[in-house]
Computed example of a mutant assay.
Amino acid sequence: MRYRAQISYVGTNFCGWQNQPNGVSVQEILENRLSIKLQQEIQITGCCRTDAGVHALKSYFHFDYEHELPIDFLYSMNHLLPFDIALRDAVLVNSDFHARFDAMERSYIYKLHGRKDPFKQNRSFYFPQIRDVDKKVLEEAALIFKENREFEPFCKTMSDVKTKVCELNDIYWHFDLVNDEYEFHISANRFLRGMVRLIVGASLQFGLGKMHIQELRESFRTQCPLSKPWSVPAEGLYLKEIKYSE
């Protein structure tokens, strides 16, 4: 039988979602605790591969287990898991369900704050220059991103994906000027490696006047990198939600 599980996690202490030889991953912890609880080796497949330091408000994975889950499954798993990973739900799904390939839409949020706040450490990007960013330019850049489908300039180098086409469904900024907090929201059918952080970094560069917005249009036309690409830190990035057809 195949199960789909929903989790939330703070990515600060992990090398990312996927198992790595040089650090502890979210996947490694989950597989270890599931194997302990279910008393057999369990392997899981995630809906996406977040980088080191990236958080998830709502993420999913699937795993196979030939029995009904114990009644105390959620309680026991959350007791076994570290404080920065929470198992929210686990439901029986069709045997051909795939957490990654069946996802219809993925949504991310990037959080920034301009006022120093120790309680936001590793949960938001502290960026004092946020007050100098032209909000109209941020919104203009968002419209240009929305109009395009080929995102070669906004993909980390050495990526082995076959296509750089992404269908953006929504993209916008939310400004809380009272508290100096900005949020960037983006949803698409898929994302390239490092894409969201490169988009946020480019938007801030345009908003600060370090690059002209026309360069963004030219970059999409030629599919060449920007003159000053910037990948903002991982700490502000959150996987917000994954949508499935069911």
Rank of each mutant, 00 (worst) to 15 (best):
K136H: 14
L87I: 10
F145D: 06
P128F: 11
E105H: 01
F83A: 13
Q43F: 11
L92R: 12
V93H: 02
L143G: 03
I44G: 00
L57T: 03
G53N: 13
N78T: 10
V133T: 06
I130C: 12
R100E: 00
H98Y: 01
K37Y: 09
I144K: 01
F119I: 04
R33N: 12
K58N: 15
G46W: 00
Y110H: 03
H113Y: 12
Y75L: 12
V133R: 02
E66T: 08
L57W: 02
Y75S: 12
D84A: 06
H67C: 06
L80M: 12
K146Q: 15
N148D: 07
I42V: 10
Y110V: 09
F63T: 05
N32W: 07
F73A: 05
T157R: 14
I42M: 07
Y126F: 15
L34I: 10
Q129M: 14
K120R: 12
R49C: 11
V137F: 05
S124K: 04
V133C: 03
L143V: 11
Q39S: 12
R49A: 10
D132I: 06
F101L: 02
M104P: 00
E68H: 08
Y65I: 08
D132H: 13
V54H: 04
M104K: 08
I85Y: 03
R131I: 15
R88P: 00
A86R: 12
G46H: 01
L92H: 05
I29V: 15
C47V: 10
R149D: 13
R106T: 09
A142E: 08
D102K: 01
Y108L: 03
P118K: 09
I29C: 09
R123K: 15
E105G: 02
L57G: 05
M77P: 05
E139A: 06
Y75F: 08
F119A: 06
A142N: 12
L138E: 02
I44H: 01
H98M: 00
D84N: 13
E150N: 15
Q129R: 14
Q121M: 14
F97S: 00
I130M: 15
L74H: 05
Q40N: 11
Q43H: 12
A141K: 02
I144F: 02
A142I: 06
K37G: 02
S35D: 14
H55C: 04
M104C: 06
V93K: 05
D102N: 14
S95H: 02
L57S: 07
E31Y: 02
H79G: 06
D132R: 12
P153T: 03
H62K: 05
I71R: 14
R115Y: 07
A103L: 01
L87Q: 03
Q40W: 02
D117Y: 00
I71E: 10
F154L: 14
H98P: 05
